[in-house]
Nucleic acid binder design. Structure first.
Lengths: 336, 336
DNA sequence: CTGTTAGCGCATTCAT
DNA sequence: ATGAATGCGCTAACAG
C-alpha cells in the first residue's frame, strides 16, 4: 500500500499486463474502454496512490492547471480577504495558485509578473499598483498566450478583463451620508496617486460635495505621503472641519489615534469613515464606519472570468472582455 | 523582438546553426563552451526573451523549484506576516510558492497536503492545525521524497524540522510581568485545544504563577470555544480578577471590547496582554501590549532549513533535524 | 569543443 | 478494444 517511490503509468501497466495507453485511457474515462477494465485500473491506481505527474502533463498538453496571483502585500486585509476567496474558488475548480508579491517599485512589479509568465501559469490575476509608463510587458505576456485579469485597479489602455469594486459609488455614498448627517466641512485623506482606486474614491468624494452645492476646497484634500505632513496639515485645519473620509481603513485608524491624542471627540466633533471594512473596524474606539468592498465576490468573480477566458482561448472562441464592478456598501458603526 | 509564440531551444539552435545541446550548455554556463559562443547565445536568448520551459525541466530533473505552503487562513495577521517573509526569502532564492489553505477540518488539512504533494513541489512548509490521530499521511508524503517542515505548531512523534516561536517563554514572561506589576488574579483566555501553541502558552502561564507561589485556579482558565460561554464566565468572575492573558491578539481585542461594554477600566482595574503583536495593537484603546513572535525570522528560518534539507536529500547527505525556536519579546503598550 | 541519441511521464495518433 | 509509436522541451550520457 505504501510505495516509497513515485508510481507511474508504466508501473500500473506492467502490473496489470496492459499497455500504458490503455491505463491512461482507463484513468481518463475514455469511451472505448470496458467498464470492467476501468474499475480494475482505477482501483489499483487508488491503492498505490498513483498521481499523474503534472510536469509530464504540463509538457504535453497546453494547460498546467495553475494560476498566478500578483499582489502588493499580504499585510493588507483587503488583499487577505480577496486571496482567501480566490484560493477557495481555484481549489474547488482544480487549480493551484502561485503567489508572488509585486514589491515596492514598478520595476519589481514588472519582474514579478514575468516570473509568473515564466512559470507557465495558465493565467494571471494581478493587482497592479503602479501606473506603468510602459505597459508593453503586459502585451508581451499576453502574446505568450497567458491571459491576465486585473484586480482592484484599472489600467487605462489595456484591453483585458477587470474586476474592481465600485470605488466611485462607495465614496460618493459615504460622503453623501456624512453630509446628510449634517457635516459640511469634510476632509479627504487621499490614497497614493499611482493607484486608480485613490483616483475614483476622490472623484466620488468630490462629486458628492458638488451634488450638494458644497465647494471643493483643495486644502481639505490631503495626499497621504508623509505622516508628519498629514498631521501638520490636520493641525492647521483644526476646528475647521467636522468629518474625515479616508482612502482606506488604515488611514482611518491613524486618524482615530491622532484625534485621541489631540482630544478631538469622534464622532461628536468629527465624523470618520474608512474604506474596505477590515475586521478591525469593530475593535477601535469608537468603532469605525467603513465602506465594504465585498472582497469575497471579487475573488470569485476574478476566478470565474479568468477561467472563462482561458477556456475561450483554448477553444479558439472569441473573447469579450468585461469590467465587473462589485457592489460597495456603507457599514455604519460609531464613528459617524 | 516580440515573439508572439513561445520560443524554445531548438528555435535558438536553428537560428544560430548550432545544436540544441550547445545552446543548452551555453545558457547553463557549461565550462567547455567558448565565451564567445555563450555571449552570442545569451544575447539572442535575451533578445527573444527566451525562458526555459519549467515543465520540461521539472520532468527531466528532480527539482521543480517550487515550495508548497500550507496555512490555515490568510486572515490571521501572524500568518500574513510569516507568509510575507517566506515569499520574500523564496523569491530571492529562486523558488516559487504554491499556497493552499488547510481548511476547517483535519480531513481537509490532509487533503490539502496531498494536493501539494501531487503538485510535485520540492518541499512543503506546513502550519498544521489539527492533532491528527493518524499522521501516516505525513510519512507517506515523506516517502514520496518530499521533505516537510512544520511551522508554528509542533507534532509529537513526527521526525522533521520545526520552526516555532518560543510560546512557553513568551507566555511565561508576559505573566511574570503582570505579577511584577502587582496583579495576582490572572485569567487566561486559552486557545483551541487542538493546536500545540495553545498548550505551550498555557504552560507558560501556569509556570509563571507557580514560580510566584500563586495557586492555579481552574476557573481562571477559560477555553474560548463559544463567545457567549466566555462572556458568561467572565461576568461571573467580575471584580475577582485583575488581569487577562490572552492566547492571541484577537481574543484580546474581543476582551477589550467586552471590558468597554461593561465599563471595566483597562488597565486600571484589569491589565490585558495579547499574543502575536498584530499591527492593530497600536490602534485599540488602550493600545494593546502583546508578545511579539518575530514572524519575519520564522519565515526566513523555515525557508533556510527546508532548502537545506532539500539540498541534503539531493546530495544524499545525512539530515539532522532541528527545532528552531524563535525569540519572543513582550511589547509593552497601554493595556498593562 | 560540439553534435547525436536517448529518455523524463504522459496522452495521442495510428495501426491492428 | 488495445498496443506500438510519437513527441511535448529539455538535459545528460556518449561519441567524435
Amino acid at each position: 500500500m505504501k510505495p516509497n517511490q513515485r508510481i507511474k503509468l508504466s508501473d500500473l501497466a506492467s502490473m496489470l499486463n496492459l499497455s500504458t495507453s490503455t491505463i491512461s485511457r482507463a484513468l481518463n474515462d475514455h469511451p472505448r474502454i470496458p467498464t470492467e477494465t476501468k474499475k480494475k485500473v482505477k482501483a489499483l491506481a487508488k491503492d498505490l496512490s498513483y498521481h499523474p505527474n503534472p510536469f509530464a502533463k504540463g509538457l504535453l498538453q497546453k494547460q498546467t492547471k495553475t494560476i498566478g496571483v500578483l499582489i502588493p502585500t499580504f499585510g493588507d486585509v483587503f488583499f487577505s480577504k480577496t486571496l482567501e476567496s480566490i484560493e477557495e474558488e481555484l481549489f474547488v475548480r482544480g487549480y493551484k495558485m502561485i503567489i508572488v508579491r509585486s514589491g515596492k517599485t514598478a520595476e519589481q512589479e514588472k519582474k514579478a509578473c514575468w516570473e509568473l509568465a515564466k512559470s507557465h501559469v495558465d493565467g494571471i490575476i494581478a493587482a497592479i499598483s503602479f501606473d506603468h509608463e510602459n505597459i508593453s510587458f503586459i502585451n508581451d505576456i499576453n502574446d505568450e498566450g497567458i491571459p491576465m485579469l486585473f484586480l482592484d485597479r484599472v489600467l487605462e489602455s489595456v484591453d483585458a478583463n477587470f474586476v474592481i469594486s465600485d470605488d466611485y459609488i462607495g465614496a460618493f455614498n459615504a460622503v453623501k451620508h456624512l453630509i446628510a448627517s449634517g457635516r459640511k466641512n469634510i476632509i479627504h485623506l487621499e490614497g497614493p496617486e499611482e493607484v486608480s482606486t485613490a483616483f475614483f474614491r476622490r472623484q466620488g468624494y468630490e462629486e458628492a460635495l458638488r451634488s450638494e452645492g458644497i465647494p471643493i476646497q483643495e486644502n481639505y484634500i490631503i495626499q497621504c505621503k508623509s505622516e508628519k505632513v498629514v498631521k501638520d496639515k490636520l493641525i492647521a485645519l483644526e476646528h475647521h472641519y467636522d468629518a474625515v473620509f479616508c482612502f482606506n481603513d488604515y488611514y482611518a485608524f491613524e486618524y482615530l489615534e491622532f484625534a485621541q491624542q489631540r482630544n478631538i471627540p469622534v464622532p461628536i466633533e468629527v465624523a470618520v469613515i474608512g474604506f474596505s471594512d477590515a475586521p478591525m473596524c469593530q475593535y477601535t474606539t469608537p468603532k469605525l464606519s467603513s465602506v465594504d468592498q465585498s472582497s469575497g465576490d471579487m475573488g470569485k468573480s476574478a476566478v470565474d472570468l479568468l477561467l472563462n477566458e482561458i477556456s475561450c482561448l483554448k477553444n479558439k472562441k472569441p473573447i469579450e472582455y468585461q469590467t465587473i464592478k462589485t457592489k460597495t456598501s456603507l457599514v455604519l458603526r460609531e464613528s459617524c
